[in-house]
Nucleic acid binder design. Structure first.
Length: 627
DNA sequence: CTTGCGCGCGCC
DNA sequence: AAAGGGCGCGCGCAAG
């Protein structure tokens, strides 16, 4: 079925078509814009669809159509978008039209239904083609067909060059969205696992709908930037880089493009004759190459090593952060990043333009971000949240007991105590014993990430000398295995001990992998699914843990948004996986409430614990805040 | 000139 | 059997 469609560019012809869109029932909305940046670009066309009607309003019809839409919003009409956050931002920046209640979003549903998407993604056209009408892939043909089928008035359509424009920009997108929505929602309901009599995927969807609003407002607000600092920092870095380059040329005897790993590899391993200690994984064409990464450079026995490490660090700060952040500043002097709820297969958020989730912690870069006048940054972060979900997922008694009985539970110390059968960690300051917590920490991360013997070995290599590794092996009362390097033998022993003591985790890991192999997907504690390609099922346990932590964090973010941002007491500005950052004044009752919201003692077998920090001057310096 | 890939590296 | 998980960005380099 295809709609009655009108492309209207004059105020006069708009009325009857708006009439046909009615005043109730779902209304699909799509904006056509001059670009993707809500701080710069503008809406040039509005596509609306309801019932059997699809209307594209542009030019002189755009203003009145927006006013009509604003009235529909006032009536709280149910709105459907594909990628709602983008259109909601554009409507707000172009027309000051704000939608204060959750809308529906076919992209969100598609991602929740199957993270692999339709035809490999979540593009509207692919979804519509798969679920609605195979002709959806060809907007021009479809538009022409629809005019015939729907008896559309030729006079309402701009022919000639404008039709091409309509085809290119997809005047029918709202129509496809409207058609795909009930089908996708039906599929989501049918797919939803049931817990406590409720379909969990639909609960997740409700949270994601609010999340879209929370992220929209975060992005629109943006973060204030200290431009003077960034400019000064950039200049200082440029001086330091130039100086380091002069030293490099002296030591190397020649000049190369220091950013080029290929050129550097030739210099180090051919001209300077330094032995190769590490290889890259290699691409399809080139295969493995000698590595010049940080680990390799640390190992080389030549004065060029430390200089290169210094150059790499300075250069990273300079290009990615000093320059990169300056280039990300919007005309309002702030940075408005984009947070994607469908950016990560586990359910985590991703962030781009710039990626605020990877701003360095120690280089000083965070000094570039400063709170708005009269306000301070507050950082609500979850404590060891992935380890807590590992405990919940596996029911491991040691971890469960620890987290239940002690809010400050030191997981790595407890792991070490269990692995070595100790009553307390490092009782006599013994050097060998003191290392045990580090070993345990490596094992815990190996568990969370699904690492194998190779990775544990290489972790140990960067932690210990061979002598120290041998001492640690002796501690286990084992004979040295001549066939293995000591670090590998130690890795084997640590893994053996770890999985002997944490059998529940071993079983949970195995169960997750089996679930993925049998079903092609796994489901986390919140009902979220992730599908796997063949031979990647080993990631299943990590997906459950990381995904549960992500869904918990997003639930917390939405609660903060709905209650405290709704009351105007906070303004969320960033989310960094296990941390929500907001601006607020110093009213302690606000922050006490934040902690009440984030702390979750009732949902799971172990409590989810949150802490709060404050940063008054910038993002760089923060201190613990207790309301 | 743009696009895609590999490398290396920032964060959780 | 073996596999560190999840991202985005700057850069060089080769291909289109």
């Amino acid at each position: 079925m295809l709609p009655d469609i009108a492309v209207v560019t004059s105020r006069e012809r708009l009325g009857p078509w708006l009439e046909r869109l009615g005043r109730d029932g779902a209304l699909a909305v799509d904006t056509e814009t001059s670009g993707l940046n809500a701080q710069i670009d503008l809406v040039g066309g509005l596509c609306l669809s309801a019932g059997r009607t699809c209307l594209y309003a542009a030019r002189n019809a755009l203003g009145p159509a927006v006013l009509w839409l604003a009235d529909q919003v006032k009536q709280q009409r149910e709105l459907i978008f594909h990628h709602a956050k983008f259109d909601l931002k554009m409507l707000e920046t172009s027309f000051n039209l704000r939608v204060p209640y959750p809308v529906h979003d076919t992209k969100t549903i598609s991602f929740l239904y199957n993270n692999l998407g339709f035809n490999g993604g979540h593009h509207l056209k692919d979804i519509a083609k798969a679920l609605v009408d195979s002709r959806a892939a060809d907007p021009q043909t479809t538009l022409l067909a629809s005019i015939k089928e729907g008896g559309g008035k030729k006079g309402e359509v701009l022919w000639s060059e404008d039709l091409r424009l309509i085809g290119e920009y997809g005047a029918l997108d709202a129509w496809w969205t409207l058609q795909a929505w009930p089908i996708l929602l039906g599929k989501l309901s049918a797919t939803a696992p049931i817990a406590d009599g409720k379909a969990t995927l639909l609960d997740l969807y409700e949270n994601e709908r609010w999340l879209v609003l929370a992220l929209r407002d975060m992005e629109l607000r943006g973060v204030r930037v200290n431009i003077d600092f960034l400019v000064q920092w950039r200049e200082q870095l440029e001086k330091d880089i130039a100086k380091t380059e002069r030293q490099l040329v002296k030591v190397a005897g020649k000049e190369i493009l220091w950013t080029s790993s290929d050129q550097l590899s030739t210099l180090l391993y051919e001209h300077l004759g330094i032995p190769v200690t590490r290889w890259t994984k290699g691409g399809k064409k080139s295969g493995p190459k000698p590595s010049t990464d940080e680990v390799a450079l640390t190992k080389i026995n030549h004065p060029i090593g430390p200089l290169l490490l210094r150059w790499r660090d300075l250069s990273k700060q300079h290009s990615t952060y000093a320059i990169g952040l300056l280039e990300s500043i919007s005309p309002d002097g702030r940075i408005h990043a984009t947070f994607n709820p469908d950016g990560a297969r586990t359910g985590r958020l991703s962030c781009k333009d710039p990626n605020m989730q990877q701003i360095p912690r120690w280089s000083g870069a965070r000094r570039a971000f400063i709170p708005d006048e009269e306000l301070a940054f507050y950082f609500g972060d979850y404590s060891q949240v992935e380890m807590r979900f590992a405990a919940i997922e596996s029911h491991d008694p040691t971890l469960i007991e620890g987290f239940r009985n002690n809010p400050l539970f030191d997981t790595h110390a407890a792991t070490a105590m269990k692995m070595w059968g100790m009553q307390e960690i490092d009782p006599d300051g013994n050097k060998l014993h003191g290392r045990r917590r580090k070993f345990a920490k490596i094992m815990n991360f190996a568990m969370l990430f699904g690492a194998g013997e190779d990775k544990v070995t290489s972790q140990l290599v960067s932690l210990l000398t061979s002598k120290e590794a041998i001492a640690s092996i002796r501690e286990f009362g084992r004979k040295l295995d001549r066939k293995l390097i000591p670090h590998r033998q130690l890795a084997q022993l640590l893994m053996e001990r770890y999985f002997t003591e944490f059998q529940a985790i071993k079983k949970a890991r195995y169960a997750a992998t089996r679930e993925a192999k049998q079903n092609g997907y796994v489901t986390n504690l919140f009902g979220r699914r992730r599908y796997f390609d063949h031979n990647t099922e080993y990631k299943a346990f990590n997906t459950k843990i990381q995904g549960a932590a992500a869904d918990q964090a997003k639930r917390g973010l939405v609660s903060l948004y709905r209650e405290l941002q709704g009351e105007g007491r906070i303004a969320l500005i960033l989310q960094i996986h296990d941390e929500a950052v907001y601006l607020s004044d110093d009213d302690p009752s606000t922050h006490a409430r934040v902690l009440e919201i984030l702390n979750d003692t009732s949902s799971f077998e172990v409590p989810i614990v949150a802490n709060l920090d404050i940063g008054k001057d910038s993002w760089q310096e923060k201190t613990r805040y207790v309301p």
